[in-house]
């Protein structure tokens, strides 16, 4: 021993000897039992993470494709819907127009029928009234004259008077726009 204090134990053969042996053993043990499992674990996790990232990218790609597909389908469906709606609207319009037209025609027909009926009724009423009036006038004339008047002649006169009256009435009513004409 060069230095008895031990601070500068330059040649401590025992320490040097055991140091080399100990360090060699430690190195071998650590290199065989410690580093490989840690390396494998790290590599495994790295592979897993890379796999997960790839998977995520693939999934995202798929999702993007699906989204595009869905958008396209939605666009198609929307177009289809619009078209159906348009058709329905057109059909409805056509139907409405047809119904309206039919209704108008039916109404016109009803009105026309009513008019015809009214015209017929009026004609018949006028005929009745004339007949009645003529009868009554003849009767009154017979009573006033006290004799039988020529029936045919009389009737003619009455009809003429009535015609005149009628013409007068007609002339008066055209000014007020009568619909009975």
């Amino acid at each position: 021993m060069l230095d008895e204090t031990g601070i500068f134990d330059l040649i401590s053969t025992s320490l040097l000897f055991w140091e080399m042996i100990t360090f060699a053993i430690l190195l071998v043990l650590v290199a065989y039992f410690v580093y490989p499992p840690i390396r494998d674990q790290i590599q495994k996790r790295q592979a897993e993470i890379e796999g997960a990232i790839d998977e995520a990218q693939k999934t995202r790609e798929e999702a993007r494709e699906l989204l595009t597909e869905y958008r396209r389908q939605i666009e198609e469906a929307r177009g289809e819907g619009r078209r159906i709606l348009e058709d329905a609207r057109k059909q409805a319009d056509a139907q409405r127009e047809r119904t309206k037209k039919e209704a108008r025609e039916e109404g016109d027909r009803i009105v026309q029928r009513a008019r015809d009926e009214i015209g017929r009724e009026r004609e018949s009423a006028i005929r009745d009234v004339r007949r009645e009036v003529a009868g009554m006038v003849i009767q009154a004339s017979e009573q006033v004259l006290g004799r039988t008047v020529d029936h045919d002649e009389h009737e003619r006169l009455v009809a003429q008077a009535l015609d005149d009256l009628e013409a007068e009435v007609a002339g008066a009513s055209t000014g007020s726009g009568s619909r009975t004409a």
Partner: peptide, 19 residues
Amino acid sequence: DISITKAVAFLWIGAAVTF
């Protein structure tokens, strides 16, 4: 001389703890 000194003992303790 390869005696087991206190230094060697602590060298082993250190190696054991490390491992």
